[in-house]
């Protein structure tokens, strides 16, 4: 019974909270710019509005174009089945679920990039090429981080890796954990196309990554993409919160509020980064990503005794 309640709570939070993160990022950026900014709940209204609309499809496209948004949404939902939130396991937890998590995002990338290429537009092709190229460097960084956590916890599922072991290991192996947090934050920024890798607010198609890939999507399909992207951001934020705020008292009434505050804090940090940094020139991006790999690799080296 208790598991059922916790699983329900998990899914409710996982499906409703993500757009709020986008709202918080927007508010933070507005604060820095001295504007009032859109209301916190604006992303929800945007999604509802998009789901009410009709659509325009390009004459060049095939069914692959529609498969992109569908797969992006579904993989986001499935990923949040695996990621532990609050103090509980995810509803689904098994040995090696971390590999499935990474490969689900891979599946999403495959179809989003293919959908972009389906339009035949050179701009969307550029975006797709950048997306898959940067992922090639982000993926090893993510797995190196997983290696550190697996070594520390001796466990091969996300619940074990991100559970109480983290709190025990901060005093002993804090340096490794801190390096992983930093590396994964960079991975979060690139996987979710935030500054300094990509500027979601730019208006020049030539310089975008994710935004230009979805240029031709409209209506409900576009809504699916936006929602899927929010789910992905939330999943990464949850991973980082578990590492950075390792508070697990076992009491759901304490752990859940702490966790939710933590994810919102991650959103604030993203907003701060976006407000205080300019985006990098494209040739510098691989260098920063290589640095993310190296950070995690140093995390492993610190564990070699």
């Amino acid at each position: 019974m208790e598991t059922f309640v916790l699983n329900t709570l998990h899914m409710v939070v996982a499906l409703t909270l993500p757009p709020l993160l986008l709202g918080v990022i927007g508010k933070t950026k507005a604060l820095f710019a001295g504007r009032v900014g859109p209301p916190l709940l604006q992303p929800y209204w945007d999604l509802i509005k998009l789901f009410q609309k009709g659509s325009v499809f390009s004459t060049t496209t095939t069914w692959v174009f529609k498969a992109g948004p569908v797969v992006a949404l579904v993989t986001g939902v499935l990923a949040l089945l695996l990621v532990p939130l609050g103090n509980a396991h995810g509803p689904v937890s098994f040995t090696g679920d971390l590999i499935l998590l990474a490969y689900l995002f891979g599946l999403s990338r495959f179809f989003t990039a293919s959908a972009a290429m389906d339009t035949g537009s050179p701009f969307e092709g550029m975006g797709a090429a950048r997306e898959v190229t940067y992922a090639c460097l982000a993926e090893p960084a993510f797995f190196l981080g997983l290696l550190v956590l697996a070594k520390l916890s001796g466990s091969l599922d996300l619940a074990g890796m991100l559970g109480s072991h983290v709190a025990d290991n901060w005093p002993k192996q804090g340096a490794s954990l801190a390096l992983v947090v930093l590396s994964w934050f960079i991975v979060l920024l690139v996987e979710n196309c935030r500054v300094p890798f990509d500027d979601p607010n730019t208006h020049l198609e030539l310089t975008m990554i994710h935004e230009v890939m979805v240029l031709d999507h409209s209506g409900p399909a576009f809504g699916m993409i936006l929602y899927g992207a929010a789910l992905k951001l939330f999943a990464f934020a949850a991973l980082i919160v578990h590492l950075a705020v390792p508070l697990a008292t076992g009491n759901p009434f304490l752990d859940w509020p702490v966790f939710i505050t933590g994810t919102l804090a991650v959103a604030v940090v993203i907003g701060v980064v976006e407000s205080t940094m300019a985006r990098l020139p494209l040739p510098y991006i691989p260098i920063l990503l290589a640095a993310a790999c190296l950070l995690s690799a140093f995390g492993i080296i610190l564990l070699v005794r």
Partner: peptide, 28 residues
């Protein structure tokens, strides 16, 4: 264990390559 990130790199490079072939041959 350094084989783990190597396998991850192989996977994501293969993905990039097959998005390239599939979309250049069949899409657009």
């Amino acid at each position: 264990s350094s084989a783990v990130p190597a396998l991850a790199l192989i996977g994501s490079l293969a993905l990039a390559c097959f998005v390239k072939v599939f979309s250049a041959v069949f899409l657009g």
